[in-house]
């Protein structure tokens, strides 16, 4: 059941316009492997039938499901490890001092997938910074994909997910086994994170200013123009002395020179250059 060129172009265009994801030519197999199961589940039988339906109808729930199915949601606890070590050793202690007057800390994960990234931050804060007790801590986690957000909110993970990057000591301390292949993060940690749907490719909703922004392993899917637009929008919600974390294969270099690189051990993160911080007009 090969995908016709026209149908591939249709899916490419849908992803590009709805969520800025760039699907390179040659990725037909990806469309087939991800959308065939969806066509079956929807009782449409074939991929042809699914795409015909998408073309016939205005953008609706089925288009959403197609977009959800086409996103890559791979993630793990404490991904790459060193950014979290840097948070613990350097960045959070620094922020605790600087934010002591207001006793408020705001953190945003802009492509949180099934929740391992924001929960890793929550676990790190909970286990290492008891001083935060009594502070106003906002940990906002957003993603485009509703399926992953729903899973993230449950805080339930299967064995493979539990094996990936989570220290065994945290498993014992913060999770309960709820079935043969499912563990659930305890409510007191789950409740530290607020999950919301948000498309990075659209204008941001009103947001407060964040001390830390995590936007890891998502810009790789976008074209240059979209990356620039997103980095510009992030400037407006990143505190002048706040830090932006990107994935290992991502950078602001050659995209937005109002950011400067801060290298802390193995970790590269980004901050607004003093002159531009807080001075944007959009």
């Amino acid at each position: 059941m090969a995908l016709s060129r026209n149908d591939f172009e249709y899916v490419r265009e849908l992803l590009r316009t709805e969520c800025a994801i760039v699907l390179e030519p040659g990725k037909e197999y990806l469309v087939e492997s991800r959308l065939c199961p969806l066509a079956q589940r929807l009782g449409l039988g074939t991929l042809d039938a699914l795409i015909a339906k998408l073309r016939r109808e205005p953008v609706n729930g089925v288009h959403r499901q197609v977009i959800d199915a086409m996103t890559t949601n791979e993630t793990l606890f404490f991904r790459d490890l060193h950014p979290f070590e840097t948070l613990k050793k350097t960045i959070v202690p620094e922020l605790l001092q600087r934010r002591a007057p207001a006793r408020t800390l705001r953190i945003w994960c802009g492509a949180c997938s099934t929740g391992q990234e924001p929960y890793s931050i929550a676990l790190l804060l909970r286990d290492n910074f008891p001083q935060l007790f009594g502070w106003r801590l906002q940990l906002l986690a957003t993603d485009l994909c509703r399926d992953v957000l729903e899973r993230a909110r449950t805080g339930r993970y299967n064995q493979l997910e539990m094996n990936r990057g989570l220290p065994a000591s945290m498993l014992v301390k913060h999770f309960a086994k709820v079935s043969a292949d499912q563990w659930q993060l305890r409510e007191e940690v789950r409740s530290m994170v607020e999950f919301q749907e948000m498309n990075l490719a659209r204008a941001f909703p009103p947001m407060p200013s964040f001390d830390l922004v995590f936007l890891r392993n998502v810009m790789i899917y976008f074209d240059t123009e979209t990356k620039r637009a997103i980095l510009a929008r992030i400037r407006r919600v990143l505190a002048p002395d706040g830090y932006l974390f990107l994935g290992c294969a991502e950078t602001t270099l050659n995209l937005d020179d109002s950011y400067e690189t801060v290298t802390l051990g193995k970790t590269m993160c980004y901050r607004q250059k003093a002159a531009t911080a807080g001075a944007q007009t959009f």
Binding site: A168, S169, L171, V172, F175, K177
Partner: peptide, 8 residues
């Protein structure tokens, strides 16, 4: 869980 805990 108790096995993981015991091992640790």
């Amino acid at each position: 869980m108790n096995q993981v805990a015991n091992a640790l």
